[in-house]
Nucleic acid binder design. Structure first.
Length: 308
DNA sequence: TAGATACCTTATAG
DNA sequence: ACTATAAGGTATC
């Protein structure tokens, strides 16, 4: 096992591990204390988070067990990590530690709601989740709460994931596409996926067979990427935007979910253009074309946590 | 092309 | 105790 630390002061801008990991963008991580994301801020802020990921670039079947925690503040703290290999490139990639968060905030329009959200969750960053797990998690997100989405992903890992050991502890990777494609709809329903079970199964089949891969959308113009992602079963515009934003690096993507839709009605009614595509354009322009997805994520977390 | 409806499951409100 | 409602929507008609 290797271990190390990343000094937050060396990053461009602040970093808050808990806000980043528990804000409903990523379902990749488990808290070591076993609590769900339901209990926001229910601990001291230095909890370990655990996952298993592929190395970068993702060219082999190798699996890397990894855990990380943040000690200290969002500008002067330390990220302690333990993994089977050097985790610095992995953490940098997954948690977008390479983003210049101060610059991103500076490039964001001075809207009061955005200011409040950015202030409240200083240091929250977007994530770069691996594409297939991200796709599945947001297919599962339809009509679900964050805590229950997280529960579904955890059950998928525990039931069908490949076991990997680190320092005597066993962790499970998110199952590969072929592994999920081989399950029956009813087996997936047994994990409480409900009507999402056939969507997950058929999407896994599409990826496993080589018919389609979510990563193909990388490099396309944003709106084409979103459109491309909707070929997966159970993926409409909203879920496509989540994958584009939380996995594929389209920082301008703004998933129009119920929270953001309500926000638009209350705060920016002129951005409601009737259709998803047109409202999306309008709110992207309002939030700043380049980093609108960053703004969306702050607003989502802020409002969900009872902000206004 | 736009609009209505069914859909699994569970926590929470009434 | 019950029943109704809503939860980061999508597919289908």
């Amino acid at each position: 096992m290797e271990r190390g630390a990343i000094d937050v002061a060396d990053l461009s801008g602040p970093f808050d591990l808990q806000a980043t990991v528990e804000s409903g963008q990523s379902y990749l991580w488990n808290r070591a204390d076993g609590r769900t994301y339901e209990d926001l801020h229910a601990h001291g802020g230095d909890e370990w988070y655990e996952t298993v990921v592929s190395p970068i670039p993702d060219l082999t079947d190798e699996r890397v067990p990894l855990r990380v925690r943040q000690v200290g503040g969002v500008r002067d703290g330390t990220l302690e990590w333990e993994a089977s290999t050097d985790a610095v490139p992995l953490l940098t990639h997954l948690l977008r530690l390479d983003d210049d968060l101060d610059a991103i905030r500076d490039a964001t329009p001075d809207l009061p709601l955005l200011e409040r959200a950015y202030d409240r969750y200083e240091g929250m960053r977007l994530v770069r989740d691996p594409a297939f797990p991200c796709l599945v998690s947001f297919i599962c997100s339809a009509q679900m709460r964050v805590a229950r989405i997280h529960g579904m992903q955890r059950r998928l890992r525990e039931t069908y994931g490949e076991a990997v050991d680190l320092d005597g502890e066993t962790y499970r990777a998110f199952p590969r596409p072929a592994r999920l494609a081989a399950r029956s709809e009813s087996e997936l329903r047994d994990l409480s996926l409900g009507y999402r079970a056939p969507y997950v199964r058929r999407t896994a089949e599409m990826v496993a067979s080589g018919e389609a891969d979510p990563r193909e959308a990388v490099g396309l113009p944003y709106e084409e990427a979103r459109e491309s992602l909707t070929r997966f079963v159970g993926v409409g515009d909203k879920v496509a935007d989540c994958v584009a934003l939380f996995s594929l690096g389209f920082l301008e993507a703004v998933p129009l979910d119920t929270w953001i839709t309500t926000t638009i009605e209350e705060y920016y009614p002129d951005c409601d253009r009737g259709s998803y595509a047109e409202t999306s354009r309008a709110i992207r322009e309002r939030f700043g074309d380049e980093y609108a997805g960053y703004a969306q994520t702050y607003v989502f977390y802020h409002l969900r946590a009872g902000g206004e």
